[in-house]
Design a binder for these strands. Structure first.
Length: 559
DNA sequence: GCCGTTTTCGGCCCGACTGTTTTCAGTCG
């Protein structure tokens, strides 16, 4: 996606301008980059349809930055970045990523020691040249030396970070009056760089917390540790009547907060983590709700706090009523293909999770996944019918389905099989770079396919999303009434939030599926969070309603 | 480089903690 490439370029320009000591511009570049990062539309599409002016209208992007975006779309590079590279040599930008080392320090080392590469920095540390510089010392040198061998920023899947955060909160709960997860985990971002926890507690909690990892910093209001798993955890302790303002502040996002503080200033107030103030008078702070209210805003759920239009929506009272839970799982694997559990075991787990139905969607003849064939799927349908009699009294139902593979010649399951199934879904599992738009289109236009599973094929940290004409596919899907799946698998979360929002703008409806291959994995909450981040409401998500609605929908689609 | 319910010029979020200092600059979130 071109947005991401431009974002990278902008962040680099910002860092370089920082090193050069240019004021204010770095912030402008970073703000623009952050906006582009969570923009659901492809900037090249915007440029194609509405020209440079279309780009200009994006908040945080003015004449100069839109010109640079156009330059990147047309030439694949930004000449300003090339110019800056001549002025800011070597690895200085990368070295600046070391926590505790910023533009000023990097620049001084560069100027005074005339070094710029990682190797030169390492050598300078070993020879203790950096500690001898004025204003530097052994600790700073140590931070740099250790940081050099760990330069890549590590991020964690929400599916990994959230349980760790919850575990720490549980361990500390007895020592705190109130305690909650804040930061990007509370916003349910798909990946997280660290864990932020906020508490109202006596000072002793810091000692308890310090036992859970290696201490990085320890003060009475803030302590940071590094856990064995390599994830940093920050604990902040605040006063009880400041909890709301602190939670708001530490939940972010940064650009959401900056915007809120600007609104506060415009209305003659001041907002910080201790409260909302008018002059010396503190007018809010105990709860987040009263802060938003006093700023003249509707309450904004954490998942939306990315400064991508939610503040404007809140000003007009138009924050959507987001999905809260789902009633069925539309993507479940079993032992019939590559799953670990039986249909019955998966059904029982679903009942335990409070669901009213599941759809069994095993793979079809996929070589890697020991798939179904015509005789076996008939047997599977028989088993499902038998189990349905058993579960009837629980008000629970199992639907038949399949996860068809979308090959280059179309969906790999014959139509006369598909039409026997309740809810067949289809997905691409190979050749991620070949005719993707055409293949997705063919699958959507197959009259029996109900949903496209993991539509972009992305696997976080491992495989980039496939390139295809999203607008076209979403338009066709909406027209054909085919659902786009929000895949709740922790390393997929595909569609992601911004894509959900884009698809929604075309009138696409969604299903949330766990893609579970074992009962342990059958939790769709990450999918619900992803839907919320995409501003999806109950009416946008089929399985956000109960069994009756799902049955009716299937009947309708069968006609 | 962006932006405007005081502004098309002159602002640009704000407090905690650290290391290196003798009162604070730099960095982070």
């Amino acid at each position: 996606m071109i947005n991401k490439e431009i974002t990278e370029n902008f962040y680099q320009i910002a860092d370089m301008l920082d090193i050069l000591g240019v004021p204010f511009k770095p912030q402008a570049y970073r703000r623009a980059a952050a906006v582009l990062e969570s923009l659901s539309e492809d900037v090249s599409k915007i440029y194609k349809s509405r020209g440079q002016r279309g780009l200009d209208e994006i908040p945080g992007i003015g004449k100069n930055l839109s010109k640079k975006i156009v330059e990147y779309i047309e030439t694949g590079k930004i000449s300003k970045l090339d110019e800056l590279r001549k002025q800011v040599p070597g690895d200085l930008v990368r070295i600046m990523n070391i926590k505790g080392i910023g533009p000023k320090k990097v620049k001084r080392i560069y100027n005074e020691l005339k070094i710029s590469t990682v190797d030169e920095f390492r050598k300078a540390c070993e020879e203790h040249k950096i500690a001898k510089l004025k204003g530097f010392g052994p600790k700073t040198e140590d931070i740099i030396f250790k940081g050099l061998s760990n330069l890549e920023e590590r991020r964690f899947l929400l599916g990994d970070a959230l349980p760790i955060a919850e575990e720490i909160v549980e361990k500390l709960r007895a020592h705190a009056k109130r305690i909650e997860i804040a930061g990007s985990i509370r916003r349910r971002k798909k990946t997280n760089g660290d864990i932020d926890i906020l508490a109202v507690a006596p000072p002793g909690i810091m000692d308890e917390f310090a036992k859970l990892g290696d201490v990085i910093v320890k003060g009475e209001k803030k302590t940071s540790i590094m856990t064995k798993l390599g994830i940093q955890v920050d604990l902040r302790v605040v006063k009880e009547d400041e909890f709301g303002s602190a939670l708001q502040y530490f939940t972010g996002s940064k650009s959401h907060n900056i915007k809120l503080r600007e609104i506060a200033i415009r209305k003659g107030m001041k907002l910080n983590e201790y409260g909302l103030f008018r002059g010396r008078e503190r007018i809010a702070g105990r709860t987040e709700e009263e802060i938003y209210k006093n700023l003249g805003l509707q309450y904004i759920p954490p998942e939306l706090r990315e400064n991508t239009g939610e503040i404007e929506a809140a000003e007009k009272g138009k924050i959507p009523k987001l999905v809260e839970r789902i009633f069925g799982d539309t993507h479940v694997h079993t032992k019939w293909s590559d799953g670990k559990n039986t249909i019955e075991e998966m059904a029982k787990k679903a009942i335990e999770l409070g669901y009213e139905y599941i759809v069994i969607t095993d793979h079809w003849a996929l070589p890697i996944a020991h798939g179904l064939n015509e005789t076996r799927i008939k047997k599977q349908i028989e088993e499902i019918e038998k189990l349905n009699k058993k579960f009837e009294r629980d008000g629970f139902r199992i639907f038949s389905g399949v996860e068809a593979n979308i090959t280059e010649s179309g969906v790999d399951v014959p139509n006369d099989i598909l039409k026997e199934l309740d809810f067949p879904i289809a997905a691409i599992h190979s050749k991620f770079g070949t005719n993707v738009t055409e293949r997705l289109k063919a699958a959507i236009e197959n009259p029996y396919i109900m949903a496209i599973a993991h539509p972009t094929g992305r696997i976080i940290f491992k495989r980039d999303p496939m390139e295809f004409d999203k607008e076209k596919i979403f338009e066709i899907a909406a027209r054909n009434g085919v659902f786009m799946e929000i895949n709740a698998s922790p390393d997929r979360l595909d569609l992601n939030g911004p894509n959900v929002r884009l698809a929604k703008s075309f009138g696409v409806k969604f299903v949330i599926g766990s893609d579970a291959h074992s009962e342990k994995m059958m939790d769709t909450m990450l999918g619900v969070y992803t839907a919320r981040r995409g501003w999806a409401e109950r009416k946008d998500v089929v399985n956000a309603s109960g069994l009756k609605d799902f049955e009716k929908m299937i009947e309708r689609m069968k006609k």
